[in-house]
Amino acid sequence: MVMSETITKQKRVAAIFESFNKHLKNFLEETKPNHEEYTEFVKWADRLGKTGELPLFMDVFIETHVLRSMYSDKPGTEPSLLGPFYLEDAPVLEKPYKLPMRDNEKGEKLIFSGTVRNIDGEPLANTLVDMWHDDADGEYSAFGADAPDYNLRGRFYTDENGYFEVESIVPIPYQIPTQGATGEFLEIMGQHPYRPAHLHIMFEQEGYETLITQVFFEGDEWLESDVADGVRSSLLTKLHDNGDHKSASLDFVMRNK
């Protein structure tokens, strides 16, 4: 069985590389870069790797297209980027669910809720929900924010009806890092570095594909030009003003494996 899986994987890698090589040749024939341009590209790619920005670049410019090609004709909630700011093993919360935050956490209180179902509309009880997002300064814990590693990060479970509700703060738009090779590329392309405000959310349930997606809010100025092209209309929700807090909700559908 292991040998068979290895051979299948090798064939798949070979087929992908063959296709990539064919399209690369067509691309070079079409664009006809000169050797100076090629050399500058190699230097830039070297900087991208040495500064550890390859995951950032792939998240911003490649991942969204991979996801679209994978799921464009499949039922269920559309996936969106995992992003470079995910941390494994976020704390598992107790009810009532509230993401860990500092005592003096800035930002507007948010109550976010939703349901998780399968493609037949059946509620998925005890689905593990992993949620994380930026703070009121546009920073992620463990990636620049002056906060504990798991600030505004947590895992919790849906109830018997597939429902969940969690307290946090309203995320804000932010710009991706621009000091390195990714920033150089954005400047050359004339592209701004901003992402609209969003929640990252991941769902895990036995017998179903892990769903990694994001939630966006209507009216955000960067929705139409998200630098990572991660916005999907089906992932938009409305922020409701409830006086002392904001609320929003969205329902999710997981695919069978």
Rank of each mutant, 00 (worst) to 15 (best):
R117S: 04
R153Q: 14
G121S: 07
L128W: 04
A147H: 13
A142G: 05
E139A: 09
A142P: 01
F112E: 00
S113R: 06
Y140H: 15
V129F: 11
D134I: 08
D135G: 01
G138A: 08
E108H: 04
D135M: 07
E139S: 07
F112Y: 11
H133E: 09
S113M: 09
H133V: 03
A125K: 15
D120H: 08
E108M: 03
V116W: 03
L128C: 01
I119G: 05
P123K: 04
A142E: 06
D149K: 15
G144S: 10
E108W: 01
V116P: 00
G121K: 05
G144K: 01
G107Q: 15
I119C: 12
I111S: 09
P123I: 07
D149L: 14
G121F: 05
E139K: 06
D135C: 10
A125P: 12
A142H: 08
D130Q: 05
W132H: 04
G121D: 05
A142F: 03
T127F: 03
R117K: 12
L128H: 02
E139F: 00
G144L: 07
D130F: 08
K109A: 09
A147C: 13
M131S: 04
R117C: 03
G114N: 04
H133G: 08
R153L: 12
N126W: 02
E139T: 00
A136H: 06
A142C: 00
Y150A: 04
A125N: 15
A136F: 06
S113F: 04
A147R: 14
F143V: 12
E108F: 02
G114Q: 04
W132V: 02
L124R: 01
I111P: 06
D137K: 11
A142W: 07
F143D: 09
A136K: 07
A145T: 12
N126L: 10
L110C: 13
A125G: 14
P148K: 12
Y140C: 14
N118F: 06
D137N: 13
N118R: 06
